[in-house]
Design a protein around this nucleic acid. Structure first.
Lengths: 127, 127
DNA sequence: CAGGATCCGACACGATACTG
DNA sequence: CAGTATCGTGTCGGATCCTG
């Protein structure tokens, strides 16, 4: 193994998430409620917006578009546009986007691992 | 290895992040801009609020308090209060909180791995 | 030192309607 | 079908002041 950039070493060099470190920017990505969900929905390959909306469920058309645009700007997805009669568009994960699946999955696994503990969060509202 | 709950199997059972699944609640945790940072700052052991604020840097007193309260309700931290002359308080990660360090680290590592790609996000504002 | 109470601003989201 | 525009809203965060 050469000096390939796995990122692990660089990250460990930092103590907490410094305000100027890349990791903070990454957390801001997660700060979007839907962005991780959209990324996860794209894990099996390119999808069209409508298909995405149906697959995810509960997300508004505009919100999905907003997130896709942000993801595109962040370099997480590539937007493929096909000039056809009915305008067809497909979104595909970039390499960065695919690598993001791991952290997202880690969060998901963690969630199920402590599902019982986290139930308390929802149980907040008794009425 | 018995049927220990690693959470991995349960999570894989789901396709996308369903609206009612625990993973969505977990993502809502990350949706807080500071929460993961606070959790990460606590990785080495219990800390006092003031110490936390200094360590993290750039976080407001109230915001830190809000996040700590939310984390406490979510079962991520335990608040230890010592009835002394100068009121002393310490926050300590629960088991769920400690396990959350892994996903957070995963995001951090990912960030450095694709730091160059993510630079585009910041470079949005030329002025 | 810990933390609550407030007012305010930013931003993502929800909902609707409208253009290629 | 894909995307934009607009408006309203909720929530987190920033800033300030005040209480044990």
């Amino acid at each position: 193994m050469t000096v390939e950039s796995t990122g692990a070493v660089e990250f460990e060099a930092y103590g907490p998430f410094a305000a100027d470190c890349p990791a903070r920017a990454a957390l801001d990505l997660f700060a979007s409620r839907w962005l991780p969900v959209v990324v996860w929905a794209l894990r099996n390959g390119p999808m069209r917006p409508g298909e995405l909306q149906r697959t995810i469920g509960g997300i508004r058309h505009k919100v999905l578009t907003d997130n896709l645009r942000r993801m595109e700007n962040a370099g997480l997805v590539i937007r493929r546009r096909y000039a056809e009669a009915p305008p067809r568009v497909q979104y595909e994960l970039t390499e960065a986007g695919q690598d993001l699946l791991e952290p997202i999955q880690a969060v998901g696994v963690w969630a199920y691992r402590h599902a019982t503990t986290l139930q308390a969060m929802h149980a907040e509202e008794p009425d």
